[in-house]
Structures are given as C-alpha cells and as structure tokens.
Write a protein that binds this DNA or RNA. Structure first.
Lengths: 128, 128
DNA sequence: ACGATACATGAGCGATGGTTCATACATGGA
DNA sequence: TCCATGTATGAACCATCGCTCATGTATCGT
C-alpha cells in the first residue's frame, strides 16, 4: 500500500516506518524557535560575544570591542541583533552602556555550546 | 592605567574588568567548532531533518522527503552537508539509501534543541 | 540491453547576512 | 555653548547560503 502523493512529488516507500512519524516531527513554529535559538551561536562573532559576557557580570561596548578585537560599529550591530533576539540586555550609565546576558537560559546555552565543542566525539567511521 | 591599543582602535575603559578575561574567551578554533555544531540546527530544514531522524532508527531519502514535504534534490543537498559535517551517515541497500544520525552526540544536541525551544523563558523585561 | 527508479551533484539565481563607512544621537566636561 | 567621547544606525557592498532545474550515476526489473 502506497501512501498518497499529498506531501511532495515522490512516493513514500516504507509506510510502516513513516506512518508513526507523521505529526511527530517538529512543527514549523518549533523549528523556527530552534533556529532562532541556535542561530545565536551559529556565527563566530556572536559566539565570542556571548561567551565573553558569560565570563563577566557585564561589560561595556568599548571593553567588549577591545577584548574581542572587533570594530565598535560591527560590535554594535551584533549587540542590537542579540538584544532583539532577547539574548542580552543593556544598562546605561551616563554615556557608557553595559551589556549582560539576559537570563540563565542563555547562560546555559553558551555553557552547553562550549561543552559540545570541546568534548570528544565517539570514535566515528571515516566515510562520508 | 589604560591598557595599550593593541587589539583595536578603541581603548579599554575598565582594565580591572577586562584584565581577568584576557585569554579566557573562546579561541577562534573553539568558536569555529561551536559555529559548525550550532549551524546544524540554525536552519529550519536541517532542524526538521535531524529531528525526524532522531525519531526513527533510519529513513530513506524518499521517505524523508515525503514526510517533511521537501523536494528530493533539496533534501539531497542538505543531507550531503549534514554528512560532510559528520551529523549523519548513510547505508545503501540496492538503490535505496538509508540515513541515520551519526552518534549520540548529535542525538543529544537535537534533544537539547527541542528542550530549549519549548521550555518557558524566565519572565523577562520587555525593553530591548 | 533497455527503461524505470532512487539518489547525487553542478550551475544558476535570488535572498540573506556580516562588516565597513559615514553619520547621527546621547551624555559629560570645560 | 561647544567639543569630546561613547554608542547606535542606515546604506552599501560583498560573500555566503538554500533551493530549483537539469542532468548524471547506480541499481533493479523486464
């Protein structure tokens, strides 16, 4: 029994494998949520910004730029993006603006990111 | 005491905050590792592919395409990228090719991704 | 051997994203 | 009030990315 061609132009070959999965793969909404979250760390500049902020309580823009070797303008663009995605928040003191990680959710994400990056993979077969 | 202008064109304002962080922010190598890992899930198509594979032992290309509503060609491109980044591996049976998650490291990453996406954030301030 | 099927890949295209440059805005010091 | 400093933002540019289309390759059935 072939399942009907409703999803795309190909047929389903193993309905007994696919049947139980229908409706269980993440929805578009959840997929977007995953993408938004993981995109925070899918850029080397953002990864280093978030990591630096995870090591300190808060840092001002020019200190962050200095520490990471970034231009002030480039850093400000990324900080705006991180603010919009609710990963960081800012506090103004005169003309100095301090940034910090927004909550423990982001802090844990950064920690997990480092752990994933550094832990050895299980020994894997070479073929790709 | 101002730290010297070696990193970029701006000065460092708070050397007492920045000093302890020098050398502790992730290196370029680690940052690239984080990016490679998190980029796997920073795309809705890849996120759904990996999630579908996490729900089944293995799936063939046309079943995956059918289940996710993707074109065979687009899916194959993404599978090649996932193979190259050692997230999935494949097994050929005649002209059918089955894909599966490569190891428990990827499986845990996908599980964590879903948990991150679905758990409520701490109640956050509105201002961005 | 030939045709069908499953899958892979390259080229092309449009969209997206990151950085630089220039400039604007907010604040503080003289 | 004026100038300096810290920060933010828009425009432009260039590189990258994801998908479609067309086609190639491997395998199976007749």
């Amino acid at each position: 029994m072939e399942l009907t061609l409703e999803r795309c132009e190909v047929e389903c070959l193993h309905p007994q494998h696919v049947g139980p999965l229908i409706g269980r793969v993440i929805s578009s909404g959840d997929a977007e949520e995953v993408v938004t979250t993981f995109d925070l760390l899918a850029d080397p500049t953002r990864a280093r910004i978030l990591h630096a902020l995870s090591l300190a309580d808060e840092l001002c823009v020019c200190d962050l730029a200095w520490l990471l070797g970034l231009s002030q303008s480039g850093l400000s663009h990324q900080l705006r993006l991180l603010r919009e995605r609710r990963a960081v928040e800012r506090r103004r003191a005169g003309r100095i603006v301090y940034y910090r990680l927004r909550d423990c959710h982001i802090r844990r994400l950064v920690r997990d990111a480092l752990r994933h990056a550094r832990e050895p993979r299980p020994r894997a077969r070479e073929a790709v």
